[in-house]
Simulated assay, not measured.
Amino acid sequence: MTTSRAPAPRVKKSTASASMWGVSPTHLVWSAQHNSTLVDYTWSVGNTPFGPFSELSSLSFIQKDAAKRNVILTSLNFTITSALDVLESISAHGGERKLLPHNQLSEFIQRWNLFKYKLDKVVSSLSHLDFETALYYLRSSDHDLYAIHSLVYHASQDLEASLVCFEDPPFPWASFLMSVGIFFVLVYAYSQRDKLFSNKRKQF
């Protein structure tokens, strides 16, 4: 059994990988049965900074990819959350067509389409493990999101309260005349009730 010749750099590298880049140690595995992590050194016997028997302090390509991917996914989550906040603000003001003037509406639509295109490129680049391109499009999309946020913010500041008066509906003459006619018929029938009942008695 051999021990690490340079434990200090290895420990520093493993600590930085776990805390800064979210790389999980190779000797920890998730157990659904125990609903917790278990210690298993099956994948820590090689040259990995997480293994106690490693003589190298460098990360493997898998761990490097995981570190880069976690950074991009964290930034992507923040960007999407910010975009959802902007959409909620637009919805609270009645939609983009009511909030933005015509010239700003065109700019908003262009910026939003470009923003979605760049996010699609981020996801596509991640699927091909092209982290540099993914990070480029992600940072570029932040500029479009900032421009969209500025448009919405300035438009919401320029909103003015307005009162829309509706015209009164026309007078319902038909139903009114019908009600008056029924009323007079009932009054006439009530006033002539004696004659009507007397005619009935004569018949019998």
Rank of each mutant, 00 (worst) to 15 (best):
L59C: 07
L59R: 04
L59Q: 02
L59T: 04
L59P: 05
S60L: 11
S60Y: 03
S60D: 13
I62F: 13
I62H: 14
I62D: 14
I62C: 13
I62G: 15
Q63L: 04
D65M: 00
D65F: 01
D65I: 07
A66N: 01
A66T: 06
K68Q: 14
R69T: 05
N70F: 08
V71S: 12
V71W: 08
V71Y: 11
V71C: 12
L73S: 07
L73D: 01
L73F: 06
T74P: 05
S75K: 07
N77G: 14
N77L: 09
F78C: 03
T79C: 04
T81S: 15
L84I: 05
D85Y: 07
D85K: 12
V86I: 14
L87K: 09
S89G: 02
S89P: 02
I90P: 07
S91G: 07
S91D: 13
A92P: 03
A92R: 09
H93T: 04
G94W: 01
G95Y: 03
E96Y: 08
K98L: 10
L99M: 02
L99N: 02
L99R: 00
L100E: 02
L100A: 05
L100S: 06
P101M: 08
N103A: 13
N103H: 09
Q104L: 08
Q104Y: 05
S106Q: 14
E107I: 07
I109F: 01
Q110I: 13
Q110F: 13
R111E: 03
W112A: 00
W112V: 05
L114A: 15
L114W: 02
K116V: 09
K116L: 09
K116I: 09
Y117Q: 15
V123P: 04
V123K: 15
S124P: 01
S125W: 05
S127G: 03
H128I: 11
L129V: 11
L129R: 15
D130N: 13
F131I: 02
E132V: 10
E132W: 06
T133V: 04
T133S: 12
Y136G: 03
Y136H: 10
Y137S: 04
L138T: 03
S140R: 00
S140K: 01
H143K: 06
H143V: 11
H143F: 08
Y146W: 07
I148M: 09
I148C: 03
I148G: 02
H149P: 00
H149C: 00
H149T: 01
S150T: 13
L151N: 02
L151T: 05
L151G: 03
Y153T: 12
H154M: 12
H154Q: 14
A155S: 10
S156Q: 08
Q157C: 11
Q157E: 10
D158K: 10
E160G: 07
E160I: 09
E160K: 13
A161P: 03
A161F: 08
S162D: 09
S162I: 07
L163T: 14
L163V: 15
V164A: 14
V164I: 14
F166L: 12
F166Y: 10
E167M: 01
E167W: 04
P169G: 06
